[in-house]
Amino acid sequence: MLFNFRSLFSTRNVNKISKHLVQRIRYRHGPPSETPVQLKGRDLLTLQNFSAEEIKYLLWVSADLKERIKHRGEYLPLLQGKSLATIFEKRSTRTRLSTETGFALLGGHPCFLTAEDIHLGINENITDTARVLSTMTDAILARVCKHHDLELLAKEALIPVINGLSDSEHPIQILADYLTLQEHYGSLNGLTLCWIGDGNNVLNSIMLSAAKFGMNLHIAIPKGFEPDTMVTKTAEEYSIKYCTRLFRTTNPLEAARGANVLITDTWISMGQEEEKQARLKAFQDYQITMQIGKVAAPGWTFLHCLPRKPQEVDDEVFYSPQSLVFQEAENRKWTIMAVMVSLLSDYSPQMQKPTF
């Protein structure tokens, strides 16, 4: 009995139980704000697992860190002494750079691991990898091919796991998108987003979160390239719950009509190279141009998570004043910093909470 009691309260089990139980905007300066949101120890695999208030909190921390560090020049070593394992099965520019520079800026030490370094699930199974990394680092950010591998990694790890991209979702990209729109429009509630392109992981993350901010979503996708049916069902439930509109069509002009934000992404994701010609043919009428912008709402803007190909959006739109793509790219840094700070510390934003 004594042995079983000690086993139950071993360091590993206590950490495991703890982990799963805990699972320039116009701001006014002031004292640290009180918030009931507690994210320390949680995983971030999908925005579906986060409430509206929790996602808003992450954006609040993002804007707070950006203001304090970038605009006010403060030094905030909030993650001093902590280390982060970054696993990249797929190559990356923005995810890797924003994570490494952001974690270092906060005083921590990022450790970069490629598929050649770690062989996730090949030379060593995912369970063993998760347990080893849990003893040497404080968090894991993983960019993987299969979302299931990410879920298994999070299940076995004793430390927070962050989805740096999977075949199912790209939640940290969407946080950057929302911060960018919050900065530009001053509020997200009531905006109409228009997605024109493939039913991919980026769209899945938008569908699982936009309605939580009171945003409508118009989607134009050619037949055969629709998003996951379970994601669509959940998005429909959210649209009813949050009183927003979810509109789907195969006609880009219909989707763009009255939209505040036009969004697209690559038509050919990593691993889909063999489908290139078929995809280019299927999406040939889905390029975002000023002609499509004419039916959008006055003051419309454009987002693309990059890298971009001209067939997805022409130069006139991509380099226009309507395009927020480079501000969006920079915000990948501030939002991933907010995620890491929120999952690894008890930090409270110093700025007043914005109106979302």
Score class of each variant (00 low, 15 high):
residue 123 N to S: 14
residue 73 G to T: 05
residue 121 G to K: 03
residue 58 L to Y: 01
residue 115 A to V: 06
residue 154 A to S: 04
residue 77 P to H: 12
residue 100 E to S: 10
residue 103 F to S: 09
residue 120 L to T: 03
residue 61 V to I: 13
residue 95 T to D: 12
residue 89 E to L: 11
residue 68 R to K: 15
residue 118 I to S: 01
residue 160 P to C: 07
residue 69 I to A: 04
residue 98 S to H: 05
residue 99 T to V: 02
residue 70 K to R: 15
residue 119 H to Y: 07
residue 69 I to H: 04
residue 76 L to P: 00
residue 80 Q to R: 15
residue 97 L to H: 12
residue 70 K to E: 11
residue 50 F to E: 07
residue 150 L to E: 09
residue 74 E to W: 15
residue 96 R to V: 06
residue 70 K to Q: 13
residue 139 A to G: 06
residue 89 E to K: 02
residue 144 V to M: 00
residue 119 H to K: 01
residue 132 V to L: 11
residue 68 R to D: 08
residue 146 K to A: 05
residue 127 T to S: 14
residue 149 D to P: 03
residue 142 A to E: 03
residue 66 K to F: 09
residue 70 K to V: 07
residue 150 L to K: 00
residue 160 P to L: 04
residue 140 I to D: 07
residue 56 K to W: 12
residue 103 F to D: 08
residue 53 E to W: 08
residue 129 T to H: 05
residue 133 L to N: 02
residue 128 D to Y: 13
residue 138 D to L: 06
residue 124 E to A: 12
residue 65 L to D: 04
residue 104 A to I: 11
residue 101 T to P: 02
residue 112 F to P: 12
residue 98 S to L: 04
residue 158 L to I: 10
residue 141 L to R: 00
residue 106 L to C: 05
residue 154 A to W: 00
residue 108 G to D: 02
residue 145 C to P: 06
residue 135 T to M: 15
residue 141 L to D: 00
residue 136 M to S: 07
residue 54 E to L: 05
residue 151 E to T: 08
residue 124 E to D: 14
residue 158 L to T: 05
residue 99 T to H: 09
residue 80 Q to V: 13
residue 122 I to Q: 08
residue 139 A to K: 03
residue 107 G to N: 02
residue 74 E to A: 15
residue 123 N to P: 00
residue 148 H to D: 15
residue 147 H to L: 08
residue 88 F to C: 15
residue 130 A to E: 09
residue 125 N to F: 11
residue 142 A to I: 01
residue 77 P to V: 13
residue 101 T to V: 09
residue 135 T to S: 14
residue 136 M to V: 13
residue 160 P to E: 00
residue 78 L to C: 12
residue 72 R to V: 12
residue 61 V to K: 09
residue 87 I to D: 00
residue 98 S to D: 08
residue 60 W to K: 01
residue 158 L to W: 08
residue 157 A to G: 05
residue 136 M to A: 09
residue 134 S to H: 06
residue 130 A to G: 06
residue 72 R to Y: 14
residue 85 A to N: 04
residue 112 F to L: 14
residue 111 C to P: 06
residue 73 G to R: 08
residue 130 A to H: 03
residue 56 K to N: 14
residue 137 T to G: 07
residue 48 Q to C: 10
residue 121 G to A: 07
residue 91 R to F: 14
residue 81 G to E: 00
residue 109 H to F: 11
residue 118 I to K: 00
residue 57 Y to L: 08
residue 71 H to A: 15
residue 100 E to W: 13
residue 144 V to A: 07
residue 57 Y to V: 05
residue 155 K to H: 11
residue 117 D to M: 12
residue 117 D to H: 07
residue 57 Y to W: 10
residue 154 A to E: 01
residue 102 G to E: 03
residue 60 W to M: 05
residue 101 T to W: 13
residue 143 R to T: 06
residue 101 T to R: 12
residue 138 D to I: 06
residue 62 S to T: 02
residue 126 I to K: 00
residue 125 N to S: 09
residue 51 S to A: 01
residue 104 A to V: 10
residue 104 A to P: 00
residue 148 H to Q: 15
residue 79 L to E: 14
residue 125 N to Y: 10
residue 106 L to K: 04
residue 48 Q to T: 09
residue 149 D to E: 14
residue 69 I to D: 01
residue 120 L to Q: 02
residue 125 N to V: 11
residue 135 T to V: 13
residue 78 L to K: 06
residue 104 A to T: 10
residue 102 G to W: 00
residue 145 C to K: 07
residue 118 I to Y: 01
residue 129 T to D: 12
